[in-house]
Design a protein around this nucleic acid. Sequence first.
DNA 1: GCCGTTTTCGGCCCGACTGTTTTCAGTCG
Length: 573
Amino acid sequence: MPVHNTEIAALFNRLADLLELEDANPFRVRAYRNGARTISSLAQNVAELVKAGKDLSELPGIGEALAKKIETIVETGKLPQLEKVGARTPPALSKLMKIEGLGPRRVKTLYKQLGIRSLEDLDRAARSGKIRKLEGFGKKTEEIILHGLERFSGAEERMKLPDAEDIAKSLVAWLKYTQGVKAVTVAGSFRRRKETVGDLDILITARKNSPVMDRFVNYDEVNEVVSRGKTRSTVILRSGLHVDLRVVPQVSYGAALCYFTGSKAHNIAVRKLGVKKGYKINEYGVFRNEKRVAGKTEKDVYKQIGLPYIAAELRENRGEIDAAKKGKLPELVTLEDIRGDLHCHTKATDGRNSLNEMVEIAKARGYEYLAITDHSRHVTVAHGLDRKRLLDEIRQIDKLNEKLDGIVVLKSIELDILEDGSLDLPDGVLKELDLTVCAVHYKFNLPRKKQTERIIRAMDNPYFNILAHPTGRLINQREAYEVDLETIMTAARKRGCFLEVNAQPDRLDLTDSYCKLAKEMGLKVAISTDAHSTGNLDYIRFGIGQARRGWLEADDVLNTRTLDDLKKLLRRD
DNA sequence: GCCGTTTTCGGCCCGACTGTTTTCAGTCG
């Protein structure tokens, strides 16, 4: 099993932590963190790139030194420098820096002065009042540490996007109806449509004397006010979600929106570019010699430094600035581009609504087609369809199609890929379908090679069309199964098969990085909801967000096609 | 440690809030 990208990134991050504790050059520390970020957001397995002899220093933020270190990690599983630094500075200290309110300086002082090297040490010292006596610390800081410890022990989990949406919606409504408030925008990773959010960043433009800050900290759901200033405040809601609110004047709205949308790495890159052109960029605008030259809209900000507008979903410093400079930004796929859904369930298996109800809502959404993909027999808990019941459903759909106008129901199935790579129903019945959506639903723990072969063998079946939720991961619940997705993607491309971007907000599988890789490989994907109810069809929004984060354009997406064009792309002999 | 249509050396984004301070360091985003 090759070394995972996340393991390499973790080693670099840990090294960065320890170097920071040693007062190393902060830019060197940042270089390690940047490298870690590049590695962890890469779809391809770095170990395999190394084996293929690829020059890693071509990757952004990876230079000769880091490239060499990565090679060592791939070969030995270890980063010698980390062990060397670890001998001087206890590696456990990096955990202390995760406590809110504790950074490298304070952790270092705590270690040097009180010998604190673990969470337990920290807790003991704080409780016995030792910390407040240190220079630069005080009673209040001690309380903050104790509080941070308490919070830390709770599950540290990022919130899934739809949950954050629910919370944001009520809060935004509350803030909007405040005297003097003009615009309320949720920015941050929420706006970048990341699959999970760590906190909510809300931007407000308001008249000078608007009481919006008061109203914010007095919101019913606020559990704790972390900080409160004139232009910025932070609270923690009862749900545990942190919310930052920033108030700026109208003339700074665009600059503030850029700043608050991030990502941090994107902002740094943009500001750097600004500096090069003689501008200072902050949340109040773009400045040349103290004079504001742009800032009212995001577009103005980008324009001022010679760039076209960059969509929020792209702002991760993963090549978007370079693409913008060259005029090569993708024209991202939108909700309006989607002409149909290629994965949904009905009451026949584990869906909540009938065939007719599903079709009715799909039609109301303006879809031209809807593929009904109930489970196959192997998924017994969902009462999966056997050959006979599938034939019944096919006949039912044929009958319905005769009556329907403006939408066509596609005959399909979510077909289990069995352990040996065969499909769960015989070809004889599969050939009656318009398309198949195939998936792994059991035996997640096969070795990587076997799992990969299993899926590719399934693709050898001429009736295989789309690989559903290709890695099986459930966000915050279940890791992806071990599989060589890049090899699978290559195989899919060769065979005329497709991969799915499952739009269930629990799945969002493919990830953004793999969407981008698919695009680069020329492999088209289907964005499908896997809806188990009529309401779920709306999940398509989350799939679109993920696809946009993966740089996908309408042309890269199967279900932006008209029905005729779609049929041409699906191999059905 | 990275990086270069000003640079292969000398830079490296920018500001708010808090606490412990009498002008600023530390942390955060």
